[in-house]
């Protein structure tokens, strides 16, 4: 199944991946309009810092994902065909309990206000696109899509 893969030494922390992620997941699809609507930018890929080096953190779409076990409403599910873990693709609804954030060891789940309600958001592997927005936006081929057997 398809996963994200990082070549750390090529990353400079430009954060274009974060920006592309925000734009891709916004209704406006345009950063200027997004900010004009007074929304707080929320990304699903995180470029963090370790010893002054940028380290992108990505969702691993884990097998036996802890976020799925922790979800009290059952909305966090793993798609059977694509193996993508998402909480916005099912009958159930996210209630914003944050048990997924409490359990994800990779620090890649965040909270976002949607329709006046705070909900959990995470990488959905850009299910509506050919290749994920972050992969396409990176100017130095840091992040790529690989195929692995699990």
């Amino acid at each position: 199944m398809k996963k994200l893969f990082i070549n750390l030494e090529r990353c400079f922390g430009c954060k274009r991946c974060e920006l592309a992620c925000i734009i891709e997941h916004s209704e406006e699809k345009n950063y200027a309009y997004y900010l004009l609507n007074q929304k707080e930018p929320k990304t699903r890929i995180f470029v963090e810092n370790y010893l002054n080096r940028p380290i992108p953190l990505v969702c691993h779409h884990c097998k036996d994902a802890l976020c799925i076990s922790a979800c009290i409403s059952g909305c966090m599910q793993k798609d059977e065909k694509t193996d993508i873990v998402r909480n916005d693709n099912s009958e159930q609804k996210c209630v914003g309990c944050w048990m997924c954030i409490l359990n994800c060891p990779f620090n890649v789940i965040d909270r976002e206000m949607k329709n006046d309600e705070l909900q959990a958001i995470k990488c959905d592997f850009c299910a509506n696109r050919e290749i994920p927005a972050c992969v396409e936006a990176c100017p130095n081929e840091v992040i790529s899509v690989i195929d692995i057997n699990e």
């Binding site: 810092n49 370790y50 380290i55 691993h60 884990c62 060891p105």
Partner: peptide, 13 residues
């Protein structure tokens, strides 16, 4: 964050 612990794979790829 997890950036300090990327050697830990937590049983994932």
């Amino acid at each position: 964050t997890y950036s300090y612990f990327i050697d830990e794979k937590f049983e994932q790829y």
